[in-house]
Amino acid sequence: MIARAELRDAPLDVAAHLADVAAPTSGASALFVGTVRDHDPDASGEVVRLDYSAHPDAARILADLAGDLDAEGLRIAVSHRTGSLAVGDTAIVCAVSSAHRADAFDVCRALVESVKTGLPVWKKQVEADGSAAWIGLGGTAR
């Protein structure tokens, strides 16, 4: 069951995602929280923020990506931020619950990887000196 699949321009609530996937039938929950870091191998200096933008169909595509991994006994909650995020801000939350831990771990990881490669959300990486570069121009509309 897809409990949540959303793009937001407001902070993401990790506890709400865990609550979304809680169920009496679930014996395991796996959680991934991706945050903005202050460095990147391609940056020439300190990263101070990421500006995320999304294709108009991105919310639907996120729901489709989650739906592609949905199976009996799973509960899935995934959200991705848009807008300007400072170092330390949460960019993505993915929570998955299932009867057993292996399924929760496997689906959580697969969904995060799928979002990374398939969601048309792009980020502009801004450095302390004011320089900027577009990162991760992958993701295509489905």
Rank of each mutant, 00 (worst) to 15 (best):
A43C: 00
L7Y: 04
R37P: 01
I135S: 06
L111C: 04
S98P: 07
A22K: 06
A16Q: 15
V33Y: 07
T25M: 08
L7H: 12
D57R: 15
H100R: 04
S53T: 15
R101Y: 00
L111M: 07
V107W: 00
L119S: 12
R101T: 01
T25P: 06
C108N: 05
A132K: 07
R37N: 11
K123V: 03
D38R: 13
A91D: 11
K116R: 01
S84K: 09
G139Y: 04
G34H: 10
H100S: 07
R142Q: 13
W122H: 02
R81S: 07
D42W: 12
A19D: 13
L12V: 02
F105V: 12
L7D: 08
A59S: 14
R109P: 10
S53D: 15
W122C: 02
A43R: 10
R49H: 11
V33Q: 11
C108K: 06
V48D: 11
E46I: 11
C94E: 12
V112D: 07
A86K: 04
L74R: 02
A58W: 03
G138Q: 13
G27S: 01
S84G: 10
L65H: 06
G27I: 02
L137P: 01
C108R: 10
A23Y: 07
A23L: 05
V47N: 03
R60F: 10
R81P: 01
D64F: 08
V14D: 09
S98V: 00
R4C: 13
A66Q: 09
S53K: 08
S79W: 05
W122Y: 06
R49F: 07
R75A: 15
V47L: 12
V93I: 03
D38H: 14
A5W: 00
W134D: 00
L85Q: 05
R142N: 12
D42Q: 14
G83Y: 02
T117A: 15
V47I: 14
K123W: 08
K124R: 15
R75D: 14
I135E: 05
G118V: 01
S131H: 13
L50P: 00
G136T: 11
A133C: 00
L111N: 00
A110I: 05
A99M: 09
A28G: 02
G27Y: 01
A71F: 05
L69I: 01
A59M: 08
M1K: 10
V33F: 04
D51T: 14
V93E: 10
V115G: 06
A30C: 05
R109H: 14
R109I: 14
A102M: 11
A95L: 08
T117M: 13
R142L: 15
G83Q: 02
R142E: 13
R37H: 12
V112L: 15
